[in-house]
């Protein structure tokens, strides 16, 4: 095996949207994001990873890591993705992930919320993602200690653990309009509102259709609506489709935690399975399509849009399985002379 590489993308803007005003969503400080990157790097070093490739940002995360790098430490070689100009938009995440794929990264660790993971997933090809939660709605990224995640990622990137054993491919929802093709990792929703506005979706009253790759009863975000009506595990190849409507006009109303601090009644007209490979036309003309809880696509009057559940989404790391495999193979275990003596 040649040089072993892993990437770390940290979104400086995650956890900063309007939900800090309309709900009690918490702010995830930049300093903690920088700390998490450093904890991942420290774990990488233990796994023997040769090189870590980091995203850059204007929010202070990469600057903090760079300062820490100057102080010395037991880290792998650290390089920054500096070739693309920073835009302060999602394009920065896309560019960084592409650079990491080109550099031969074995795993990419993503620090952000559902929105960041979605952007990374669209650019990572077959490189496994390990998404850690630093955002607002976190249906997709895992709430995990970065040190353990760094160990799992490092062991996979260095080839000590077979990725086939500890990663799996997730389904995505692909949305196609005349001009754009986008994916969502968790949910696609149609809203009657005319403009993207502040992006984050926090008012359910204007929603008409909802499609989810999975629906867990203890989920947060829009997928919590089917999570309470028609749960569908992440392991299922099928998704769910719901028709929504104003509360008072629908046979079902779900009190759903659509965002941190926001439990709202959502009217449901009906639901059904969403089979992979079936193309559904969205009645979204003149409205907005939200992807993973963020209003993303404005549709012109008369413009059509389609959604399809596709089984060939990104590969994602199962941290628990990876660490269990590490234990089985004894990768983090050393038998000392004292141990050998006792065994004799």
């Amino acid at each position: 095996m040649g040089e072993t590489v892993a990437g770390i993308v940290a979104n400086p803007a995650s956890g900063r949207d309007i939900r800090r005003l309309v709900a009690q969503a918490s702010v995830f400080p930049t300093s903690e994001k920088a700390n998490m990157v450093q904890r991942v790097l420290a774990a990488f070093a233990v796994t023997g990873l040769d090189r870590a490739l980091l995203s850059t940002d204007l929010g202070g995360i990469s600057a903090t890591v760079l300062r820490a790098l100057g102080r010395g430490g037991t880290w792998p070689k650290v390089d920054f993705c500096e070739d693309d100009p920073l835009t302060g938009t999602a394009a920065d995440t896309t560019n960084a992930v592409r650079r990491m794929v080109e550099a031969g990264a074995g795993v990419i660790v993503v620090l952000g919320g559902d929105g960041t993971a979605r952007v990374a997933a669209a650019a990572c090809d077959d490189v496994p993602l390990l998404a850690l939660s630093t955002g607002t709605n976190n249906a997709f990224p895992q709430v995990r200690e970065a040190t353990v995640a760094g160990l799992a990622a490092g062991l996979i990137a260095t080839g000590q653990i077979d990725p086939d054993l500890v990663t799996h491919r997730v389904s995505v929802l692909e949305v196609v309009t005349k001009a754009r093709r986008e994916i969502a990792l968790v949910d696609v929703c149609v809203s009657l509102s005319r403009h993207i506005g502040a992006r984050a979706l926090w008012d359910p009253s204007s929603l008409t259709e909802l499609y989810c790759t999975f629906a867990e009863p203890d989920g947060i975000g829009l997928s919590s609506v089917p999570g309470q009506l028609c749960p569908s595990p992440r392991s299922s190849p099928d998704g769910v489709a719901l028709q929504l409507g104003p509360v008072g006009e629908t046979p079902y109303v779900v009190q759903a935690p659509i965002a941190p601090g926001l439990v709202r009644p959502v009217g449901v007209r009906g639901w059904g399975l969403l089979r992979p490979g079936v193309r559904v036309e969205l009645a979204a003309a003149g409205g907005v399509i939200a992807l993973d809880g963020e209003r993303e696509l404005e549709l012109k009057t008369g413009e059509s849009a389609f959604v399809e559940l596709k089984p060939d989404g990104p590969w994602v790391v199962d941290v628990r399985a990876a660490m269990a495999e590490a234990a089985r193979k004894g990768l983090l275990r050393i038998e000392t002379e004292l141990g050998k003596e006792r065994r004799r």
Binding site: R16, D17, I18, H195, G197, R199
Partner: peptide, 15 residues
């Protein structure tokens, strides 16, 4: 509370 918004997007700022 600190919120980031795209200052060149009227609809985002207005909301």
């Amino acid at each position: 509370p600190g919120v980031i918004v795209d200052g060149a997007d009227f609809f985002a700022v207005h909301e």
